[in-house]
Design a protein around this nucleic acid. Structure first.
Length: 588
RNA sequence: GUGCCGUUGGUCCAGUGGUAGGACAUUAGCUUCCCAAGCUAAUAGCCCGGGUUCAAUUCCCGGACGGCACACCA
């Protein structure tokens, strides 16, 4: 079995994740997180929240999964998600029709031409199937929209879609969110939630699915002056696989964040900052740093609005899998939502010193324009207003010419009431730029599982365990009575279990089977410690139990009254070896 | 979407035109034991629909799901 198969088998057997609705034959691309997986996933999310929300001083929101159609018209997903597919009549291969047109012509964005034009171009440009060279002229071009559609309310009058990324739920609420930030840039808004894509071909377990959890941070900045706290991550070492390297010798290189910025390997300081911050976070949640890299998008791979884009990738079964995208989205989204809604997606930026500027303006005499132009009067006034800003010289003559609905219209200059006002401007409205780290929680979850999967040998028997970080483990401790037919031992074990649960620890209890078997069960789901109540516990004073370390299987005897505190320390990151240094703790 | 291969207890597999067997796991008991021990017993399965047949888990067709390749992955 491959590494992924082995872990998927364990995941199914031990309740990490499994395919949804298998009783009904299963459904492609959907997975359910079981008892252990649900806890592990939640812990990954909590760690993310701790690092990228709480400790970063960012806000968090939770938007609905369904949004009305116009939101996705503005965001570009309605068009952008419509893949144009053409099928070869000879070999049945599917190809992106727009890509074929782009490859065979000067068009750079064939998708914008529309489906019929693209279909025509297949003929006009004599495009043939790249696989078997059969001409594709006359073949129909089909659309595949990767968004899940639905209807909001009864009937189909208000179409909606399941969000293909959580980000739009943040952008759409920007006018309100900036109020909560008191209009001050920079600020960050995060969201952890599910996103949906109706993938043509779901693949490889949790890696390509149709419903998945994203943790996204939208960092809103003033591009002119906001800078990240790059010093705080300057010495973090980044394994970078740059676009240049990908096209050249194919080698990744390690740079500190400082070097990467100074040498221009990473263009945006904000991106560099987040790559640094995130690297240590990946390390902390158990991603193997020898199987991790940051890969820069190549020029053709980048979205047209992105200045620079890097992916965090983990290696699973010999293949690199994108677990996070770090994109500089500029003002693309906010500008589009502003245009679509007319709402204010800008912040007011005060100047250090108010500026005095001369502003040309008009105050058209509507009593004259009204009778003269009738219904067009308003448009004429607007045109004059626009002209005042664009070409104030036009008002120097006796009359002013403006264009309304394609016709040239003449107006007496005095009717326009042109004047140049001297006004004091305290600041300006700017559209923030957005830096977006977008984490795929499911893929990270999978990577953590695969990278923490270990086997070793204990007393001649092979052992499987998950070396999960203590704070991530779905079950933190398991309490086991050494034997189950001595009431005093069982009672003491039950007391220990309750004591630890009251401390807020996720504690399992197991009195079934031989002791070694019970340890192995816990090893396999990555439980960091097992607490064993034995004969000595009930026979000797002070009352003590043994605590077993998952990774080394080492054991130590600890007084019961210190148990709670010791385990809390272990969960907070104390090494088992450090615990052994304590006077009251006896290594076995 | 296309092609190839596959789908049998919870898991991993074997097998058959006359409805199935192993290993591991699970549960109960004995054993009272510090690393998957042993013994006894129990629970539990042929992906779905149609066809051929006296009889289909097995053969044929279709579907669903999975793996791989191609394509796709804003």
């Amino acid at each position: 079995m491959s590494e992924l198969e082995t872990v998927a088998e364990l995941a199914k057997r031990r309740g990490f994740f499994f395919q949804t609705a298998e009783s009904y034959g299963g459904v492609g691309g959907f997975f359910t997180y079981g008892p252990q997986g649900s806890a592990l996933k939640r812990n990954v999310e909590d760690r993310w929240r701790d690092r990228f929300v709480t400790r970063a001083g960012n806000m968090e929101v939770s938007a609905p999964d369904v949004m009305p159609e116009p939101v996705f018209e503005a965001s570009g997903h309605l068009d952008g998600f419509d893949d144009m597919i053409v099928e070869c009549p000879e070999c049945d291969a599917s190809h992106r029709a727009d890509h074929l047109v782009e490859d065979n012509s000067e068009y750079e964005d064939a998708e914008a031409l529309g489906i019929e034009r693209v279909a025509d171009l297949l003929g006009e440009l004599d495009i043939a199937c790249p696989d078997c060279c059969t001409p594709l002229a006359g073949e129909s071009v089909e659309e595949f929209n990767l968004m899940f559609g639905t209807d909001i309310g009864p009937g189909s009058s208000q179409p909606g879609y399941l969000r293909p990324e959580t980000a739009q739920g943040i952008f759409t609420e920007f006018p309100r969110l900036k109020e909560y930030a008191r209009g001050q840039l920079p600020f960050g808004v995060a969201q952890i939630g599910d996103a949906y894509r109706n993938e043509i071909a779901p693949r490889r377990g949790l890696i390509r699915v149709r419903a998945f959890t994203q943790a996204e941070l939208e960092q809103f900045i003033d591009p002119a002056e906001d800078e990240p706290d790059i010093e705080s991550v300057a010495d973090v070492e980044l394994p970078l696989y740059s676009a240049t390297a990908q096209e050249g010798d194919g080698k990744q290189e390690t740079y500190t964040v400082r070097e990467a910025v100074e040498e221009g390997v990473i263009e945006s300081e904000w991106i560099a900052y987040y790559l640094g911050l995130a690297r240590d976070w990946y390390d902390a949640i158990g991603i193997d740093m020898d199987r991790f890299r940051y890969r820069q998008h190549k020029a053709g791979e980048r979205a047209h609005y992105a200045a620079d884009c890097w992916d965090a990738e983990t290696e699973l079964d010999g293949e690199w899998v994108e677990v996070t995208g770090f994109a500089y989205r500029s003002d693309y989204d906010l500008t589009n939502h502003a245009e679509a809604t007319g709402d204010t997606f800008t912040v007011f930026k005060q100047y250090d010193e108010p500026k005095t500027v001369e502003r040309p303006s008009v105050d058209p005499d509507m009593a004259t324009l009204g009778p003269e132009f009738g219904g067009q009067a308003g448009a004429v006034a607007d045109a004059l207003d626009a002209l005042a800003a664009a070409g104030p010289d036009a008002f120097d003559g006796e009359t002013v010419a403006v264009e309304v609905d394609g016709e040239s219209v003449e107006v007496d200059a005095d009717v326009a009431n042109f004047e140049v006002e001297t006004v004091t401007e305290a600041g300006e409205h700017i559209t923030p730029h957005v830096v977006e780290p977008s984490f795929g929680i499911g893929r990270l979850f999978y990577s953590v599982l695969v990278h923490s999967y270990e086997t070793d040998e204990v007393d001649g028997e092979e052992r499987t365990y998950l070396s999960l970080p203590a704070e991530l483990a779905p079950t933190f401790a398991c309490v086991v009575p050494l034997v189950s037919n001595e009431p005093a031992i069982v009672e003491q074990a039950e007391r220990a279990r309750e004591q630890l649960r009251e401390a807020g620890l996720a504690v399992a209890y197991d009195e079934s089977g031989a002791i070694g078997r019970r340890y192995r069960r816990q090893d396999e789901i990555g439980t960091p410690v097992c607490v064993t109540v034995d004969h000595e516990t009930i026979e000797k004073e002070p009352t003590s139990v043994t605590v077993r370390d998952r990774d080394t299987t080492a054991q130590a005897r600890i007084p019961v009254e210190e148990l709670q505190e010791c385990l809390l320390a272990l969960r907070a990151g104390t090494d088992f070896a450090d615990l052994l240094e304590r006077d009251t703790v006896t290594p076995l």
